[in-house]
Design a protein around this nucleic acid. Sequence first.
DNA 1: ATAATTATTTAGATTTACCTAAACTTTATT
DNA 2: AATAAAGTTTAGGTAAATCTAAATAATTAT
Lengths: 221, 221
Amino acid sequence: MMNLTIAEENYIKSIYKLEEEGQEAVSTNALAGELETKPASVTDMAKKLKEKKLISYEKYQGINLTAEGKKAALNIIRRHRLWECFLVDKLSFSWEEVHELAEELEHVRSEKLINRLSEFLGNPQIDPHGDPIPDAQGKMGKPRPQTPLDKARAKRLEVVAVSDKSTALLEFLNAKGIRLGTQLDVIERYEFDNSIELKIRNQPAFTISEQVSKNIMVKPI
Amino acid sequence: MMNLTIAEENYIKSIYKLEEEGQEAVSTNALAGELETKPASVTDMAKKLKEKKLISYEKYQGINLTAEGKKAALNIIRRHRLWECFLVDKLSFSWEEVHELAEELEHVRSEKLINRLSEFLGNPQIDPHGDPIPDAQGKMGKPRPQTPLDKARAKRLEVVAVSDKSTALLEFLNAKGIRLGTQLDVIERYEFDNSIELKIRNQPAFTISEQVSKNIMVKPI
DNA sequence: ATAATTATTTAGATTTACCTAAACTTTATT
DNA sequence: AATAAAGTTTAGGTAAATCTAAATAATTAT
């Protein structure tokens, strides 16, 4: 397996994620958004990753992982999710704390370490958020299709369904500008009543109750 | 606590090590040697670390850690040694394998993570090489009384630590059956090259060079 | 189909952490 | 004390990963 920098690994991971979400070819802009960087930086990196044969890329045509790139992505995801398991199962972190830490731990590249960690954890099949963990060969179970907003872990989410079709709820969502495809940023989760403070691009933040968030099905972007 | 880059952390750690080894002021050259980099690079970094008030440094006068720098160093060492414990105690790595891995894991900066890890491990006081682990406040027990094997005068000795953590040396020692707690009998010391003939219980005697014996820390039994 | 808008790329800078080669200090030697 | 040797710094350069601003291509709207 090729040796990647941390930046390269993060690009690979994000490309994988966007492909999973259904983007035929991952656009420069989408990737820049995902990585919180600028499109120009993405173009630069795309050239580098193409050189390394991890992606296919032609000017203006977007990006796709090659077989090798996909393998690399699955390996990174494996590391990430195993570390999340470790943090929750062994160090008693709660599920919303672990992503950032796993984001760092995942970049320690050692087959042996990660395989031993997996064994130590009892070769778990899913991580604390319910996402499947690829095995050492890069085989992974199917991802869960969607999560109710009150259970979602990611900060940036896209609305994929609303389960309660009552006029009351739909009117409320409409008033707030929440509809299918809307992208949400979770600003804060308040434990005392499980309400959630949300933000939609170009709008002021607002808060919704647990009752509402339970019925908004989302997926991470 | 200030936010340091990985490179900065490695410099701080090496400066600490060289100070511990008795260097009044750490020289540019010594530090370059320790970090396997060039003196010119050390001078560059020295300016940066001085700016951040982690070291005291005047042109041509060498480097010393400030109180803040020392605190940072102890924190890094704490992380390193706790990860080593984890790898050996929980993931069944052998002691010669863990240094390189811990070298990477130590750069994940999270108070909470490292304190939980310590707790998970039972707040160990020494790492797998016999070195003491600083506590959360940066207090560290004194290294166990020890002498480098090349200086020890007793005939019957016990291995308490290994000062050079390179895989090369550790692998060599492993092959010879020398590890923490191993009991050695000094058969002969050869003055012409300061090599030493040793015997471990139930094994044929063998000879090690001065280079090796310098790095094996022992105490009389 | 042409113009306007949006997306993407290029060109040129910046920062970090390195490097080499040359200049300069300090120290050791005669 | 003068000189040689060793150690250190400066000057100038490189590579990675960013950025901004300007140019160019693709898409959408008129």
